[in-house]
Simulated scan of single mutants.
Amino acid sequence: MAKTLGPVRRKFSPWNDPTAKPLIEFRNVVKRFGDFTAVDDVSLGIYEREFFALLGPSGCGKTTLMRMLAGFEHPSEGEIRLAGASLAGKQPYERPVNMMFQSYALFPHMSVEKNIAFGLVMDKMPKGEIETRVQEMLKLVKLEKFAKRKPHQLSGGQRQRVALARSLAKRPKVLLLDEPLGALDKKLREETQFELMDLQQELGMTFLIVTHDQEEAMTVADRIAVMDHGKLIQVAGPSEIYEQPNSRYVADFIGDINIVEGRVTAIDGGLIRMEAAAPRVSIVMEDDAATSVGATAWMAVRPEKVRISHDAPIETGVNAVHGEVWDIGYIGDTSVYHVKLDDGGTFRAAVANVSRTVERPIGWDDRVWLTWSKTAGVVLTA
């Protein structure tokens, strides 16, 4: 049986070690295209053996940041360093990085093995070493039986593996992945995400992936940098990004969430009380957010942390709102209820479908109560 990677992933956190030095450093990097600032004063460290994700919507600057590391673009200001050395003035082929493009960019007239060998041939590696390395790569991505085929004779997933093997063949210090799974269907994409994780751990390499797919970033990455308008908004591990977003932007961008605006009316012993206008409700949250009485703040809670019931809550100390089921989304493993609240706005609750029942205990137009605990969400101040 293959050795589990769990202990490796659980213990890996060099960013928490003040003595650890990043492998990749972006120092106050700015990139302008005319009057447009694509990357705005980004400082970031990525560590050796880390699987790091740059996440954000189209146009946020994530691909530009990766292209500057690869050498296809150059910073307007700031510096990029790799293994302690500046990359300024170095051409892409002089950098110990390799990039796997979203389009895969395979040579249609070459076989799988010749596609994989291409970079090694360009580097004038001895023929015997090339053959050995290609066989290693074919075995690594489980394509030994397809070595003589052309790209058009392969499935989308197989072409993706060829592109990955070609990128790894030169054994770069860093592998750059630009939306690498975007062309795959959902099921294959999910399977390939776990294969990428296992491969990265097996090779002991540093992977940097650019993606707009939140689930993909949350699945594969040790840490995620959420970007918007060229800036880093939050850099943290997947669980912290999801459970402790630092702003409404991150909370709203990552997954589904309910956000309610209110005014802070009391702060006492780690409890923050807010009064919201829509819905008209008093909310109590256990949070250490830096806010003050009278300030505007936002309560954010994930739908899966919201309970839905026909009955009014009998326990004390819970937050509760009342409304009518407006819509229901059945997603197989989960049902998502959109509830139109009596005091304005819409709230969402997600319920795991743990039984095979077809009849819903709660249906359209039902009057329901939604409740959540003091520790279920977070208080946001920005």
Rank of each mutant, 00 (worst) to 15 (best):
N98E: 04
P75S: 13
I130T: 10
D123I: 00
G78K: 05
A147V: 07
M100Q: 13
E131F: 02
M110E: 05
L120W: 09
K127S: 10
P126E: 13
K114N: 15
L87V: 14
L82F: 11
M99Y: 05
F101N: 04
V97F: 02
K142R: 15
E136I: 01
E131V: 10
R81S: 14
A117W: 06
S86W: 05
L106K: 04
L143F: 01
L87C: 14
L143V: 00
Q102C: 09
A117Y: 09
G119V: 07
E77M: 09
S103I: 03
T132Q: 14
K139M: 01
I130S: 10
G89L: 09
E136H: 10
L106G: 08
S103E: 02
V112L: 01
L140C: 05
K145D: 06
E144K: 00
E136G: 03
Q102N: 04
A88W: 09
F101R: 04
E131R: 14
R81H: 09
L120G: 08
E79C: 03
E113K: 06
L138W: 00
G119T: 12
I116S: 10
I116C: 05
I80L: 07
A105H: 03
L82K: 10
R149P: 00
Q102V: 12
E144P: 02
E131I: 09
K114D: 13
K142E: 14
H74R: 15
A85Q: 15
A147I: 08
E129Y: 08
R149G: 00
K127Q: 11
M125T: 13
E73I: 05
A83P: 02
